[in-house]
Design a protein around this nucleic acid. Structure first.
Length: 478
DNA sequence: ATGTAC
């Protein structure tokens, strides 16, 4: 366990020690930090600081927890000439992310038909592990187009509104995608899973605006008082998993080949300019586009379900608020020691949080900043924030991504076994539909930290600004 | 997260 020093109420430093090339910076309040004592995740932050070409500190958000190599809730930026790209710094679920829809309904209007809505969502959107096949039949060559075009492919096929694209990080298409870098096996796994939720912490959730912290920005985002929302959390499914797995071995060999010392083999990586690094880059972006298309299809299905229950007008007036990646690496321009510098920013369990005025934001977000979507657990609440200048200067334009686990899946299942979690949720006014009991038990609200505390750290440290709190009323889990 | 090991 490395040494940790308190900087202020919300910041902690891991000073350079051993082979660290830079220091670590953890955002947390005293209680969150206490919970981290003895946690492997703190060591993982220090490990990331060993990698060549790292610029600024190895950063951890208040929802940090143990992950493959890099911690989940981590941000690491690398110099384009000297730095590396690492699959462990992106995560197995490439472009895991969330998207939020705002319906024209208020909770009062939706309440009488919520049971119908959750049943319609469960019937319309395939969920669960493996066999969850979608009804999208990809013709020969279509998958490559999905990998190249992402959400734009889906919109061109009639899934959703062209206006949706402006409300997606990077407009839903990452340009460096190269389908030729994606293995046949990954493509095979991806063919039948487009438009499916998946399992674990992935979900489709109906909620409502319970609190508005910034009314002006909430209004601009279509989040009026009691507005009913649909929150979608999913990623690149088996395809992204396979892309990550395919490259771990290659990266381990590349690290040896280029003389990169690894404090942990799971940090395996390759120089950004190397053939190995470029190959992963093309594949990672392709998988990210698959995830964008996946969420675009699910949003289409969610609108279809809303249409079935509340009428076509409701479906048509349901707008995409925003869609963010929280497992991705990107080339971005940041200011380093007063100079504009191109960096490769890895965000693993961290959300981009660009400030007002950033040129990459679509016009409708220029003056308010980028929406930052933070799901909590299925029993309490989630948050919408916007990016800030503070995030841009201090965390390479990044914020947290969720509540963060406090119980292992195994521990949560043990705790849930004698109880009936769906019934407990229903008693709180939250309907749940899930493929298996195991998933619900693992995902019980107590398995997560209080996301309000996580978001408060982000807000008070100035690396994000609270806009609205959403409370769940119906959840579909895998 | 993940056809929880080809």
């Amino acid at each position: 366990m490395p040494q940790v020093e308190r900087i202020d109420d919300y910041r902690w430093r891991i000073p350079r020690q051993g082979g660290m090339r830079t220091e670590g910076l953890i955002f947390a309040d005293e209680q969150l930090m206490r919970d981290l004592e003895g946690d492997q995740a703190v060591q993982q932050v220090a490990n990331v600081a060993h990698l060549p070409g790292i610029v600024g500190p190895a950063i951890a958000m208040p929802d940090i927890h143990w992950g493959y190599g890099f911690p989940i809730g981590g941000v690491a930026a690398f110099d384009e000439a000297e730095g590396v790209v690492s699959p462990g710094g992106v995560g197995y679920d490439i472009n895991c992310g969330v998207r939020l829809l705002a319906t024209p309904l208020t909770l009062g209007e939706a309440r009488p038909r919520l049971r119908q809505l959750v049943d319609a969502l469960y019937a319309t959107i395939p969920s669960g592990l493996g066999a969850s096949r979608s009804d999208v039949r990809l013709a020969r060559g279509d998958l490559d187009q999905v990998l190249r075009l992402g959400a734009r492919w889906a919109v061109e096929q009639g899934y959703g509104d062209p206006a949706d694209l402006e409300a997606i990080e990077g407009n839903g298409t990452l340009p460096d995608a190269d389908p030729d870098c994606v293995s046949d096996r990954a493509k095979e796994r991806g063919k039948s899973q487009l438009g499916t939720v998946g399992s674990g912490n992935h979900f489709v959730e109906v909620g409502y605006v319970a609190e508005r912290h910034d009314e002006r920005v909430a209004d601009r985002l279509g989040l009026g008082p009691a507005t009913v929302t649909v929150f979608i959390h999913s990623g690149s499914r088996g395809l992204g998993y396979q892309v990550c797995d395919d490259h771990l071995d290659l990266m381990l060999r590349a690290a040896a080949k280029y003389g990169i010392a690894l404090p942990d083999k799971q940090l395996c990586c390759a120089p950004l300019g190397s053939p190995e690094g470029k190959r992963y880059w093309g594949a990672m972006n392709a998988a990210a586009n698959y995830a964008f298309a996946n969420r675009q299809l699910m949003a289409h299905y969610a609108r279809r379900a809303l249409g079935t229950v509340f009428g076509e007008d409701t479906a048509r007036r349901t707008r995409l608020v925003y869609d963010v990646c929280h497992n991705i690496a990107k080339h971005e321009t940041h200011e380093v020691s007063g100079a504009r510098t191109r960096l490769c920013v890895h965000r693993k369990g961290a959300t981009r949080a660009f400030p007002p005025g950033h040129p990459e934001l679509a016009p409708q977000f220029r003056d308010i900043g980028q929406p930052v979507l933070i799901p909590g657990d299925m029993g309490r609440y989630s948050y919408v924030l916007v990016g800030t200048a503070g995030a841009f200067t201090e965390t390479f334009g990044s914020s947290c991504h969720g509540a963060g686990r406090r119980l292992s899946r195994h521990k949560a299942k043990q705790l849930a076994r004698p109880r009936n979690i769906p019934m407990e949720l229903e008693a709180q006014g939250i309907l749940i539909r899930a493929a298996t009991r195991a998933t619900v038990d693992e995902e019980m609200p107590e398995a997560y930290k209080d996301v309000a505390r996580v978001v408060d750290v982000v807000d008070r440290a100035g690396i994000g600004k609270k806009v609205a709190q959403l409370k769940p009323v119906a959840v579909v889990k895998g």
